[in-house]
Computed example of a mutant assay.
Amino acid sequence: MALPPSTANWHWKNKNVTRWGTEWFEQELPTITVAGDSEGEVVGISSVTEVDGDIELGQRKSKLITIFDCKVVMKWEGTASDGTAVKGTLTIPEVSHEIICDRLSEFVFNWTLSTDASPEVNALFTLARARLPTALEAKLATFPSAIVDTHGKDLTISADPSRTGTPAPATSAPAPVASTSSSGAAAAAPKPKTTEKPAVNTTTVVVEADFRASADDLFALLTDEKRIPAWTRAPAQSQAQPDTAYSLFGGGVKGKYVSLTPKEIVQTWALQSPTWPSGHEATLTTTLDQSSESTKVVFTLVGVPLGKEEEIKRNIEGYYIHGFKSIGLGTEL
């Protein structure tokens, strides 16, 4: 006899997703590039050559848990300010749940340079070591949620046969059947139950940068569904209208637009990651202040869970700031 969903979801289950995880690294990490301050400088991950370790998704007491610990070896390459092609390798000895989700330790980056040294080559090597780690950490932060989104349905048993393999929907009270008393009055319908979101202690994160671009161009890059992928390197959904939903970085960030003017964008903002509280939304206000030579952009994120300030700041710098730099918009942080 089959166990009821509430009982079946209580037991420990595991799914090995190492092959899928390896392919995720091979596809996602080579999308990362950053630009330098000197004209023509650009560097990025060219390929992933080795993923050594195990990647699993587990379920215990109806909770999905990512379990992974891998060594990832990559090749990086770029172009120095004098046009020299520069190459090398990068090894991250540990990419794990403990680092990304539990924050028990920091990433370690081991670099090698294959190209003969010169002042221009050395400058690009310095650029790679200074800015690629931030972009890599931001991308790797989405790995646990990608595991859950892709494979979670295979471990959670639903009470609804039409939704086999997905979490069971919340149970609502059946529609009341109209009945009349001797006086003809209708029976009162039961009041729906409401679920309050847990309180989250929060703070504010502010990141700003100057871009050599007009405010109008930056506004379009931030809101135009067709232009967003140019700097995020991932699919996006955006209608750029108040009270419409948006999705960035392939679903890594979601929310709704609150208001949009040529100089200010206000939107709710939620990171789709196990480290972000379920159901919690912050508010991101982006201001664009154009001067004669550049536009100052200020990202103000109100409602960041306490303890996540540095992680979220790195995400904004890695995704937004360096995303713009990757398409040639010079900045000064």
Rank of each mutant, 00 (worst) to 15 (best):
A2D: 08
L3A: 12
S6E: 13
N9A: 12
K13N: 10
Q27E: 15
P30H: 03
E41L: 07
V42S: 09
V42R: 04
G44E: 00
S47P: 00
D52K: 11
G53N: 03
R60V: 10
R60F: 15
L64V: 08
C70K: 01
D82A: 09
G83D: 03
G88P: 05
T89L: 04
R103A: 15
R103L: 14
W111H: 02
T112P: 00
V121W: 01
A123Y: 00
A123M: 02
T126W: 02
L127G: 05
L136E: 03
L140E: 06
T142Y: 09
G152C: 09
D154W: 05
D154Y: 07
T164I: 11
G165C: 08
A170L: 13
A173N: 05
P176K: 04
T180G: 11
S181Y: 02
S181G: 15
S182L: 14
A185V: 11
E196F: 10
V205C: 09
A209P: 08
F211V: 02
R212M: 11
A230M: 12
T232L: 09
A234C: 02
A240H: 04
Y246G: 06
Y246C: 06
F249Q: 01
K256C: 13
Y257D: 05
V258H: 02
S259I: 05
E264D: 07
Q267E: 14
S273Q: 09
W276F: 13
W276M: 09
T286I: 15
V297K: 06
V297Q: 03
T300S: 14
G303H: 05
V304K: 09
L306I: 03
E311W: 13
I316A: 08
Y319W: 13
F324T: 02
K325E: 14
S326F: 07
T331A: 13
